[in-house]
Design a protein around this nucleic acid. Structure first.
Lengths: 183, 183
DNA sequence: AAAAATACTGTACAATAAGTTCGGTATAGA
DNA sequence: TCTATACCGAACTTATTGTACAGTATTTTT
């Protein structure tokens, strides 16, 4: 990829993240992104069709990174339900979040973050679906699969949301315990 | 209240609900609401400061109605956790939703309904907080109260969301069972 | 029934933002 | 060095928001 393109794309992402930490997605205009990234108007539209696509690509990049890092590194065959293992996939995710990779927390801390959480949940569902056989072992048999998967991922997301809303005072281990308890 | 005001307000709500069933909240313009409700531009702004306030008031009216009806009618002293009672508060809510009071389902069925669900969850949390003593009986003692309340209401909302997303094929009783199972 | 108050109409208007166009400049990669 | 292409920047169209105001209709009060 052209070095210029990479630089511009990065500048847009950085500007967007910084703005997201300050105000709600809806309140951010393309003009502000342009000004903050210090690029031309036409350049922005050469990279992203709309603001929505920008968010989409940013989220995909972020989650791709976090989830890949979680699955990799010898953890490939562990799964989210090894609740006794101190290094479960869930815990790994939380630790990644706590590291605040690329200001990811700015996105989570901001007041209205439905869109972000939607992408979060979507990625999570895909992860969980890959582990469906393991997960079904724990499932009460009267529940439909899709209900169960939805419940797991939604609870995961809600756990993280609660964590952030309350100032992230608990450490990832404690939070992981909370999650395992309600599941 | 002036008959004219009531009529106009109603016309706006109806137009808004109909539009919400067809497209995402963000895609709806004040102009479309005005056209659909067949009122003057200034009239809209005389009733609602912004589109956000319109949504807010609509949600409040809807939930106020549903929750009041749930709590009233001899059910006042029942609570959401009487899982064995066929007429638990949860079941009541589901039945209300199924009746599709005032096209409430149009709001839920539409593709992007985060805002609506946010208000839904907010109302729910208030309801649950009123029943906090009962709920804490069931709570695993190591969990913080707020985490538990959040988990209950989030699971409730997610249950309904899943229901709708899958075409509402289950009857309220079955869905109520699912909910009780995962809780 | 007359008068006063209030709600609605409809057009016009300013302000802001989105997204496009295009000629010119700068830079990457061969 | 040459060529392709990414960027610049300004102008422009279109769409939407929110306000203003003069005139009309309806409700409420006297």
């Amino acid at each position: 990829m052209d070095r210029r393109q990479k630089k511009t794309r990065e500048a847009i992402f950085n500007a967007f993240c910084e703005l997201l930490s300050k105000k709600h997605y809806d309140q951010i205009t393309v003009g502000q992104i342009i000004e903050s990234a210090d690029i031309g108007r036409a350049t922005f539209y050469a990279h992203f069709e709309t603001k929505d696509f920008l968010l989409k690509e940013l989220c995909e990049e972020l989650f791709c990174h976090v989830f890949d890092a979680t699955v990799a590194g010898g953890e490939a065959h562990r799964h989210i339900f090894e609740c006794d293992a101190p290094s479960s996939a869930f815990l790994h995710l939380l630790q990644h979040l706590q590291n605040n990779d690329r200001g990811i927390l700015n996105l989570l801390v901001c007041e209205n973050n439905e869109l972000f959480l939607r992408y979060f949940k979507k990625s999570l569902k895909e992860l969980i679906n890959h582990q469906l056989p393991n997960i079904c072992e724990k499932k009460p048999e009267e529940l439909p699969d899709s209900f169960w998967v939805n419940h797991i991922s939604a609870t995961f997301v809600e756990t993280v949301r609660w964590w952030i809303e309350n100032g992230m005072r608990e450490d990832p281990e404690t939070l992981s315990d909370y999650f395992m308890t309600v599941i």
